[in-house]
Simulated scan of single mutants.
Amino acid sequence: MDTTGLLLSAVGTVAGVVSAYFAYVAVRHQLARHRRRAAPRTPLPAPSPANGAARYDVFVSYGREDTDWVHSFAERLGEKGLNVAYDEVVSRPGGIRVHTVEAAIREAAHGVLVFSPASMSSGWVRQEYAALMQSSIESGRLFIPVVVGDVQLPEFAATRYCADFRRVGDGAGDDGVYEQRVDEIARAVRSR
């Protein structure tokens, strides 16, 4: 082999080693970036106390102006055998509202949000919506939008079938439609 061939062979070998090294560095860099992006999220705490069962069947979020409607609605769900939580049920004198509501959402198997003009303008309800929706997406908990007013559902809520109470009264003189809707919700919660 002449000197030129030997020189070209050496240059080719060095070029191959250098390109292999840079490919190795690029792959390591990509893997490190992927690991940083795919770092596991802190999972939500379990939906229940130590015994493995949820403390509440459902947590109900709503706007203040809908309190009377929600009291009646929660009572009807209770009559269907569900253990219903909402802020007034779980609050205690001297308790811190945000911690109490967070615990109730965490300890509920599923979530209901009453969508009305009042709830759509409430900062508290927006926070509860975020927690309920995140829990539904990450943990598979049921999220049921209950519509009682003329509102447009947020995008994520609109992906769920809603219980529409807009043209339904409070159960008195509505041909049983109110009770039918409450029954549908209770069956959905019990079946999960």
Rank of each mutant, 00 (worst) to 15 (best):
R97W: 15
R160P: 07
G173F: 07
I137Q: 15
G95E: 12
M1K: 14
T4S: 12
L153T: 08
N83L: 14
F115D: 03
A118C: 12
F22C: 09
R97S: 15
T159N: 13
I185Q: 00
A118W: 06
E138D: 13
E75G: 08
V60F: 02
V182K: 00
F73W: 02
Y56C: 02
A131M: 14
E138W: 08
R160V: 11
Y129H: 13
R141T: 05
N83E: 11
T13Y: 13
A85T: 01
G111T: 06
G169I: 06
V177A: 07
P49Y: 06
R190P: 03
L113R: 03
V151R: 05
D175W: 13
L153F: 05
Q180C: 10
M120R: 12
D2Q: 11
Y21K: 13
H71C: 04
P47R: 02
H29L: 09
D175C: 14
T67M: 10
Q180G: 09
E107I: 13
A39Y: 05
V112R: 01
V189M: 01
R166P: 04
Y62D: 02
E138R: 08
Y62L: 08
V58S: 01
Q127E: 12
E88T: 13
L31S: 10
F22P: 04
H110S: 05
S19F: 10
Q152E: 10
V168L: 04
D164V: 05
R41N: 12
Y24G: 11
D57V: 04
L44K: 03
M133R: 10
V148Y: 01
G12Q: 12
V58K: 00
L77C: 02
S122K: 05
L82Y: 00
A54T: 01
A172W: 08
A186V: 04
S122Q: 06
D170A: 05
T3P: 14
Y21Q: 14
S91N: 12
A54P: 01
A163W: 01
P49I: 12
G78W: 02
F22T: 11
A104N: 01
S135M: 10
A15Y: 11
M120D: 11
V114K: 00
R37Y: 08
T42H: 09
V90Q: 01
T42V: 11
V112N: 02
E155S: 15
F22S: 09
P45F: 06
L142E: 08
R33F: 10
E128C: 13
A118P: 04
W69H: 01
G16E: 13
R106N: 05
R187T: 04
E155M: 14
